Amino acid sequence: MVGTILRHLFSPPTRRLATLPSAKTTTTTTTTATPRVLLSRRPFSTTAPLSATLNQVLRGCRKGKRARHATSPALASANAPAMKGVCLRVGVVRPKKPNSGERKIARVKLSSGTHISAYIPGEGHNIQQHSVVLVRGGRSQDCPGVRYHLVRGALDLGGVANRATSRSKYGTKKPKKATVG
C-alpha cells in the first residue's frame, strides 16, 4: 500500500479520462454516447513556490519605470515632423560651461499657438521679426532649453551661402560648374 501511494505521488503528471454518467432517455431505446472530460492533476513538487521575503513585502511592490519624455514636446503633441511658425524675436545665447561662442536663437510662435526657442544652424541668416519659418525637432546640446532647430532653405529662412559639405542640411544647392569656351 505504501508503494502505491509513493508511486502515485512521485509519478509524472498524466491526463486521465473520466466518464460522466449518461442521462437515461425514456423515449428512445438507443443509448447516447458518454461524453469524456479531461481531468488534469497538478504536478507534485517537494519545493514550495518562491514567496517574497519580509524585506520585499515591507518595501512594497516594484514601481515601473517612468515614461521617457519627448525631446521635442510641441511637435510630439501635434504628431508632426515639422511645423510652421512666426519669429517673435531673434537673438544670441552663450552656450553652457565647456563651450564658448554665440549661438543664434529665434523665439518662435508655432501654428499650434505654443512659443518655443529654436536654434538657427549654419553661418549667417536672413530672418528677422515676423519671418515665417519651418521648425523641426532636435535640441541644441550646449544651449539649455533649446529643443528645436529651424530648417534652412524653407519658407523665409534662406540656405547657407557658399556651403560645400552637408548642403542638404543647410538648404544649399549644388554649385554650378563654370563652362569654359
Rank of each mutant, 00 (worst) to 15 (best):
S111N: 11
N79Y: 05
I120N: 01
C143V: 15
E123I: 12
A106K: 00
T32H: 07
S111D: 15
R62I: 08
R103S: 09
V90S: 05
S100D: 13
R107Q: 14
Y148M: 03
R42F: 10
G101F: 05
R152Q: 03
A80R: 14
V92A: 09
P81Q: 03
I127W: 08
P121K: 04
A48C: 05
S131Q: 05
A67P: 11
N79I: 04
T46Y: 03
S131D: 05
R152G: 01
S100L: 11
A82E: 12
H125T: 04
L58G: 00
A67V: 13
I120K: 02
S112R: 05
S72F: 06
T46Q: 06
H125L: 01
H149C: 14
P35K: 14
V135H: 01
V132H: 06
A67C: 10
Y119R: 08
R152I: 00
R152A: 01
T46N: 05
V93G: 08
I105H: 00
V132F: 02
V86L: 10
T29M: 00
G85Q: 00
K63I: 12
H115K: 13
G60F: 03
T32E: 08
A67I: 12
Y148S: 07
Q141E: 10
T47N: 06
A76D: 14
N99C: 08
R59E: 08
